[in-house]
């Protein structure tokens, strides 16, 4: 298992234009990043396109990593997630939205998912558990599936402003819980 500091070191080498470090970084992280993109896009070909685009951004912007206050995996996952969401929103039409809703997972992580979760993840998942089930699903749908307010409002069949009020309250509850 490649450690966070290994990945940090690879990114700093990539920032200097080290192609072999770039290749190592790809080998160490591409499977996770493809998982992230696939979760948003639900389509392997699109997700692989996004993976390629993600690493092109990593090559270009690696020198900006050190100043952004994120762990290296968080930074990489954020790029992959945002690139996937951009792709989703650039291409989707109404029927795609329906597909996304259909494949949205049920409330809460499966036992298997919980088993692999780190202690950090257990903290936020513990706090998520304190939310009502549908609020929790909405937050998970936003983070993991890249759903916007508009998508979530359609999914839960509530007005957009209602969804926004729900989510804002949920985010405040989460922040307070995490700060404890």
């Amino acid at each position: 298992m490649t450690s966070n500091s290994d990945i940090e070191h690879m990114i700093s080498r990539v920032a200097l234009g080290d192609r072999s470090a770039f290749s190592d970084l790809y080998d160490a992280t591409s499977a996770k990043l493809l998982g992230v993109a696939l979760r948003v896009l639900k389509n392997r070909a699109s997700a692989e396109d996004v993976l390629q685009e993600t690493f092109m951004k990593v090559w270009r912007y690696a020198d900006r990593y050190s100043s952004n206050g994120m762990s290296p995996m968080t930074w990489l996952i954020t790029i992959a997630r945002n690139t996937a969401i951009d792709r989703l929103r650039a291409t989707k039409n109404d029927s795609d939205v329906a597909d996304v809703m259909d494949t949205m997972p049920a409330s809460g992580p499966t036992p298997e998912q919980s088993a692999v979760a780190s202690s950090d993840a257990r903290q936020i998942m513990g706090c998520m558990e304190q939310l009502e089930a549908d609020k929790r699903d909405a937050v998970r749908g936003a983070y993991l599936d890249g759903l916007s307010y508009a998508d979530l409002a359609a999914r839960f069949d509530v007005p957009l402003n209602t969804m926004r009020t729900w989510l804002r309250r949920s985010l405040i509850s989460l922040r307070e819980c995490m700060a404890q």
Binding site: S30, K32, E48, S114, D120, A121, M178
Partner: peptide, 22 residues
């Protein structure tokens, strides 16, 4: 916010990309 939610990505399963991507 990004740091707060990042651990949720732990539950996402890894998917090995096809070799053509690299």
């Amino acid at each position: 916010t990004v740091n707060q939610f990042a651990p949720l990505a732990d539950e996402i399963a890894e998917e090995t990309p096809s070799r053509a991507v690299k």
